[in-house]
């Protein structure tokens, strides 16, 4: 495994705060004026812990993942990321807080801007946060760690397979070294061997950086083997 060794940048992990990476308290969330999908849900993901969230489709797993990533504003409840409360969501969340969570979505085709090459796709968060200089240092190592060869990086999304694109999306989620990685059905569209490779890449990265994980899915076997503990969605609901 090629190690991203020549990196003088400070790591976020060493301070090892006892604060949990993610703390959701009494989250009620839904869409428009319809009946809320989540009702007073609470969930804690400890620092460096891997939590699997299981549940049938339509139960609100993805909504919960989006709330955790500060991409959906709940109607009630509090979200704390590494101990810091979130007061805004989407663009209203402060940039430092947004970037403490990396997200991987279910469908890589929709999660990748069709006009960017995979290299630009992965480097996009670095450029967006004004860390352009790090692109050349970080990109090759990170791409290699998710299993993307040099030739693939110059291609655009329509020229690669779903699995390769999802690897790029994973790299994009990790490029800012988040404290928490949210995988929303990351492997649902992929075959078994690609799934195994992606999970291995995530685990490799987590072992190195101590990133916490919230993996959402309905593949019980996978999540139970992957995560430290799994949570059944219905147990989060009151009564």
């Amino acid at each position: 495994m090629p190690e991203p060794a020549p990196e003088p940048t400070c790591e976020t992990a060493p301070e090892t705060t006892p604060e949990p990476a993610l703390e959701l308290r009494g989250i009620t969330a839904g869409y428009d004026r319809r009946e809320p999908v989540l009702r007073e849900v609470s969930l804690t993901v400890g620092d460096g812990e891997a939590v699997g969230l299981l549940g049938p489709s339509g139960c609100g797993k993805s909504t919960l993942a989006r709330v955790a990533a500060l991409l959906h504003r709940p109607q009630a409840g509090t979200v704390r990321l590494a101990g810091r409360p979130a007061h805004g969501f989407h663009h209203r969340a402060p940039r430092e807080l947004r970037t403490t969570v990396g997200v991987v979505f279910q469908q890589p085709r929709l999660a990748a801007d069709p006009r960017l090459t995979l290299a630009d796709l992965i480097a996009e968060p670095l450029r967006a946060t004004g860390r352009r200089a790090e692109v050349r240092v970080r990109l090759p190592a990170l791409a290699a760690s998710v299993g993307l060869g040099g030739d693939l990086l110059a291609r655009r999304p329509h020229e690669v397979s779903d699995g390769q694109l999802q690897r790029a999306c994973l790299a994009r989620a990790l490029v800012l070294r988040p404290r928490l990685l949210v995988c929303d059905e990351m492997t649902a569209m992929l075959d078994a061997s690609t799934t195994a490779a992606l999970v291995a890449a995530v685990e490799e990265y987590r072992r190195e950086h101590g990133t916490a994980l919230l993996a959402v899915g309905h593949d019980r076997v996978l999540l139970e083997r992957w995560c430290d503990r799994t949570v059944e969605f219905k147990t989060l609901l009151p009564r």
């Binding site: 991409l71 970037t99 801007d113 946060t129």
Partner: peptide, 21 residues
Amino acid sequence: RPYVDAAISGGASRWRVAVRH
């Protein structure tokens, strides 16, 4: 689209999302 969400999560400003995506 999720790719806009991904950009926001990656720290992109409103302006950047508008112009780039």
